[in-house]
Design a protein around this nucleic acid. Structure first.
Lengths: 189, 189
DNA sequence: AAGGCATATGTCAATAATGACATATGCCTT
DNA sequence: AAGGCATATGTCATTATTGACATATGCCTT
């Protein structure tokens, strides 16, 4: 029962979905692949924390829709109130930006542009996500609050942080060229 | 030659330091432990990307101070301009906050408080770090810009993001209780 | 004086994560 | 008609990460 298992329960708490859906959804909060997720779903099912409904489809392969059992909801709550592990983060971009000052202008500018591009793409993605959430909410106003709350707050957080990153890039560009310590007086705002 | 190796070179580009120093410094940007770092330092040394100076100490164990070679600087630049991998993030707190809406008020409030505590501790840590950077800069004004730039921009970024997280927590607390969709109209600001 | 802590370096077994392989449906484009 | 793509589920060998074990100095507190 690793951390990812609880993540799957967390996602399933908002609405029942397939392993495929879980794979795409969890990737926004927790780096993983279907290779890890499918075996965990089998384990969770064996432990009676989730149950599946087989949905036969035409035009697409059949799928297994999982939903939480009462036992699963209990496990979710016990995990929720247990101690929270420190996050694991490995961000190559940050490692590169750390040594930007010892790189020549061309290399530095190329990296900043690359990062800004990524940020802009993410911002676009977050806006699309917000639009999708609002459509979902209108389509199903009774069930929507519960199923949409988590996505909504996370999208808002991601959007704000990414906009901050863009401002930060501009600031880094501004102070990059200074060869004395005057950058220590420049505020990031 | 994995990503962490380049991270070590990145840190060493600002100033020579020991494996112990690298372990504490890199942890702010890249989750790792000394178990992974010491073997990599040996590899990097065998490849002539770094060289060591043995420093005999009294009161503390002797240490090995590593510095970049020209070959190491070349490798650092070639990595810097190469494609940047997507970040790996596994944050249990985020996974929990995602399903906060289906938890009872007590559990929800306990988690928000825990998160805010963490944020406040981090903010304190960032402020201390900024103060330390300014002391370092005053002590050694000629060498300081190069050795301090990376830490300074990363500390500023971390500080801003963490302050944003605190505001976000307040916002989440405010909209948590709403059982209808009115929260979709509330802006995070 | 005993224990804890920060400094300092190192190994290794157990566990976890990744990327490749595998299969299958049917749509859409060239 | 062939290939690519999105959907959908699954396995497994390789690689990477973690936590424990190991050793050592000397300071500080109880």
């Amino acid at each position: 029962m690793n951390k990812l298992s609880y993540g799957l329960l967390s996602l399933l708490s908002t609405e029942p979905m397939s392993g495929y859906d879980l794979t795409t959804k969890i990737n926004k909060f927790w780096r993983s692949t279907h290779s890890a997720i499918y075996p965990l779903l089998s384990e969770l099912e064996e432990g009676n924390y989730i149950e599946l409904t087989l949905i036969e489809q035409t035009g697409k392969p059949d799928k297994k829709i999982y939903h939480l059992t009462d036992k699963g909801k209990e496990l979710l709550r016990s995990w929720f109130i247990s101690e929270t592990a420190d996050e694991v983060c490995r961000d190559e971009m940050t490692l590169k930006l750390y040594c930007i000052n010892c790189m020549d202008e061309e290399a530095a500018e190329t990296l900043l542009k690359e990062y800004e591009d990524r940020c802009n793409k993410r911002i676009e993605m977050y806006h699309k996500n917000l639009a999708r959430i609002k459509v979902l909410a209108q389509e199903n106003p009774d069930n929507a609050p519960a199923s949409v709350f988590g996505s909504y707050i996370m999208t808002q957080r991601g959007l704000q942080k990414t906009e901050l990153d863009l401002k930060w890039c501009e600031w880094v560009r501004r102070i990059y060229k200074k060869k004395n310590l005057s950058f220590l007086k420049e505020d990031l705002r």
